[in-house]
Amino acid sequence: MPASAKPFIFICGADDFLVSREGKARYDEIAATITDEFSREIINGTANNVAEVEAAVNRFRDSVQTISMFGDRRLVWLKDVTFLADNQTGRAESTLAQVDNLREILAANNPGQVAILITAAPIDKRRSFYKWCEKNADFTLCGGDSSDKNKPEAFAPIVTAEAQTLGVTFGANALPLLLAKIGLNTRLLIEEVHKLANYLNDGETVIEEAHIAELTPNIAEGDFFEATEAFFSGNLQRTLDAIHRHFFNGGDARPLISSLQGRNRLLLQIRALVHAGDLRMGNYGIDKSSFEKLASPDSYGRHFAGVTEKTNFNLFSQNTWYLGRLASRLPSMKDLIDNQQEFLIAFEEIIRRSSEQEQVLREMTLRCLGKNA
């Protein structure tokens, strides 16, 4: 063991899956050098209250101070620590006192005798303990520096990095489509990247939009997402195929029409603002500064005062990254208004022809997209 080695390993981040995966890799690496299984111990650091924090720290202290039966090096993993987060348990005075005790244990550790690994997610990076770990530990922050797990752009680097480890990249519009279909779930996104990479033929290294459209399930927005995405791509045959799959799997017309209307509402608002010159489109989608200005109470935002829920009736309740992806192919105002009228006609038609819902939507699609085919 090098004399300059840090007294412990600290792995943290906003996403528990990434932190646990990195922690498991480091644990296995060290465990391979410690053949005695009784010299390896994993302690659960999940705590829902102060009493559980105290119990975890005390057990950790006892384990670190335990001497190996044969004098060999020991390995202790304090796993899935949750009391370092910005939550009620993490902010409690008694918890902060236990964190100080934890710091004393770590500072006094001899890594030549005991290898200590700690994994924590999420974590409050404003706390002094976090900053102390940065300086004194073998430190790893997983998932980048962003802690906002509600924004797609926070997940894009994670997915891209995973693809790079597999020797593949994403083609045009492929990554946004993957995020839209799977949603903001790291575990599912990474598993999907592995699936798509394995699907590629020998010599292929690019995951294309077509691969995702064909192979990736519509987890984030339900079974009608595929048809909505296809419709607004302007691809007639792809839309007809998606509608057929929707009904073949037992789908109903009403949620599909609702999804189409919702997307159309957002595009109508974007088109109106762009046409008026109020909203700018940049190289990477919607210009965020102009969007935020329009959302202010001094501008269009005043019309939505008091509205806090996310809805497609309010453009400003949506994420700019998501809107930029929608607006990458922005129909004309005439086409959008025609769409709304066709959706209404289709809804009235399925009431009269309830047993022919698929045919009604196929006819609607041909009227909307057939003119441009």
Rank of each mutant, 00 (worst) to 15 (best):
A305E: 00
F343I: 13
L177H: 00
M1S: 11
K371C: 05
P297F: 12
S332F: 13
P111E: 08
G13H: 03
S328I: 07
R73D: 09
F139V: 07
G71T: 13
R91T: 04
N48W: 12
Q98W: 05
W132N: 10
S299I: 01
E41F: 11
L361E: 09
I11P: 10
L84M: 15
A121S: 14
V168E: 03
R187L: 13
T216C: 08
I116Q: 03
E349C: 06
D62S: 14
N283L: 12
R325E: 10
F313Y: 12
I43V: 14
A230H: 05
G277F: 07
V81G: 07
L179A: 06
D138G: 08
I212L: 04
I219Y: 01
N136L: 07
D16I: 11
P2R: 11
D124G: 04
G234K: 05
I105Q: 11
L336A: 02
I158G: 02
E162C: 07
L366V: 11
L166F: 00
T89L: 10
R353Q: 15
N136G: 08
G183I: 09
A327M: 09
P176L: 11
S128A: 13
V57A: 04
R40G: 10
P255C: 10
P152F: 02
A120T: 08
S146Y: 05
Q237L: 15
L196P: 07
I9K: 00
R127F: 07
I219K: 01
N339I: 15
G171F: 03
N283C: 03
I67E: 10
G183W: 03
L78S: 13
V193R: 06
I43H: 09
P157S: 06
C142N: 05
K334T: 14
R127N: 08
E229W: 06
S94F: 10
G183M: 00
L236V: 08
I123E: 09
R21Q: 14
D15A: 02
P152R: 02
V360M: 01
N218F: 06
L260H: 00
I351M: 15
Y199C: 04
T160N: 03
R353P: 05
H246A: 02
E358Y: 04
D138N: 13
L78Q: 02
S354H: 14
V64F: 09
F232L: 08
C142P: 05
E226A: 15
L18K: 07
V76W: 05
D72N: 14
L117A: 04
A51C: 04
L315P: 00
F225V: 04
S332Y: 09
L266Q: 10
R26H: 12
